[in-house]
Design a binder for these strands. Structure first.
Lengths: 241, 241
DNA sequence: CGAGGGTTTGAAGTGCATCAAATAGTGTGG
DNA sequence: CCACACTATTTGATGCACTTCAAACCCTCG
């Protein structure tokens, strides 16, 4: 069966499941499903009852929270390989945010009940999840810091740095992974502000912007500009979860 | 020995340790120490090497991150009973924030090595910690949302609501737990902004403010005002960690 | 080519920060 | 119990960053 083959390969490559038992992995693959989600497809809504968790197979998924009058706060935008909805196990089985595909995406869905069971039975998995959660928590701390201490241009510079290969020493080309409007929301600002702030960043650092492509002579250009308003030392890798 | 008696009692009451083995608890109590920390005492600094984690026994502890030029972002302000520094286990043994006592406080210090060991040996404890971490993560999501979607006055209203007994129906009196300046930093605003925003909140909702005391006829006054700019339904308890 | 979404630009408004100074509040020693 | 010193809080005036509303521009794709 094609689908389960594919799911298996993806699941086995997830760091979190390296420690899982073979029986669990089998069961997981059995009940895995792939879904094609068009742009704008809503996968679930904040506070919905949760019985599945998900993995982004390809595309991009936005996690967000929305008020009654439609204002929304983007919590994160996830690339291929990322898990989401899995924390609902500890949240009274309800999702702590809404999820929407922001590009045509392929999403794998998996039953939370299996995960819940295996986490209780397999300490190794619990540890792996704990570790992932701690990493995420740290990222959130950083996010709060950045929104407090960095201005719009600095946040953009920081975002670009995180997209780049942080070991590189020479000239670099960075491609924005999705819409500028979406980047703006990810960074907690309006599209207009993003546009203007990117212009300011360009003037201040000498980077070159053509559409979704950004070229820089060296990372230092951005580091000097953005990292001065951040509490962390520069190589600030995310160690993907 | 007085000290270890006291530590024991506190540790046994922590939800997280209900699942711990008796041997572990014994060892933990053995190596526990109480410290008196005056106002302003710095307990550790962001990115210090971590070998201890802590519990607030009494007083208040501020967790924050600071840039080179002294600007700081407050991550959280913890009351008695809260654990901090424990995530360093997963962070390459370095603290993800700085910690400072903001009132004269008593702090219990405990070796991370013991916790690390027990988490690996005792699945129940790992689960308890996982659950606590998930709860914290959700709080962080909410924090990011609030800083994006709520204005200063609404954030204050929301803060007051979380201090109050959310089941109450009649008139309520709320006491600010610490300095207004500190509340302001906790909410990500300047003291001046706090003062003015509180005034605006007073005008808009009819609450009464006298020093550190706030009186309201009913919670609804604040709910209408603050929760309209939030994605969650009102009774939004924190379920303390 | 034309429609529609993404992006930029302009003009004006709002909210919060900043700087400066007045006022209230608290604890201390006399 | 009072006066002083010091800190917390408030108030005023001003500036800046970001938002909002509006319109133009651009790019892609049918």
């Amino acid at each position: 069966m094609r689908e389960s083959e594919e799911c298996k390969k993806i699941l086995e490559n997830k760091a979190m499941f390296k420690m899982a038992s073979p029986e669990f992995m089998d069961k997981l693959v059995q009940s895995a499903h792939l879904h094609n989600a068009g742009k704008g497809k809503v996968l679930f809504i904040h506070q919905d009852t949760a019985d599945k968790f998900y993995i982004v197979v390809s595309g991009w998924v936005k996690l967000f929270r929305e008020t009654l009058d439609g204002a929304q706060a983007v919590v994160d935008i996830l690339p291929a390989g990322h898990i989401f909805g899995e924390t609902s196990i500890f949240e009274n089985d309800s999702y702590p945010y809404s999820a929407e595909a922001v590009e045509p995406s392929v999403i794998m869905s998996l039953p939370l009940s299996l995960l819940k069971q295996e986490i209780e039975d397999n300490p190794k998995l619990a540890l792996a999840m704990l570790s992932a959660m701690a990493r995420y928590r740290k990222q959130q701390d950083r996010e709060i810091e950045h929104r407090t201490l960095q201005n719009a241009s600095q946040r953009i510079g920081c975002f670009l740095l995180r997209l780049a290969d942080q070991e590189a020493t020479g000239p670099i080309t960075i491609h924005l992974p999705y819409d500028k409007t979406l980047v703006a929301s990810r960074l907690g600002m309006q599209p207009e502000t993003f546009s203007r702030a990117l212009g300011k960043l360009k003037d201040a650092t000498g980077i070159k912007v053509k559409g979704a492509t950004v070229e820089l002579k060296s990372l230092d250009q951005l580091i000097d500009y953005s990292c001065s308003a951040c509490s962390s030392e520069f190589p600030c890798h995310d160690l993907n979860a």
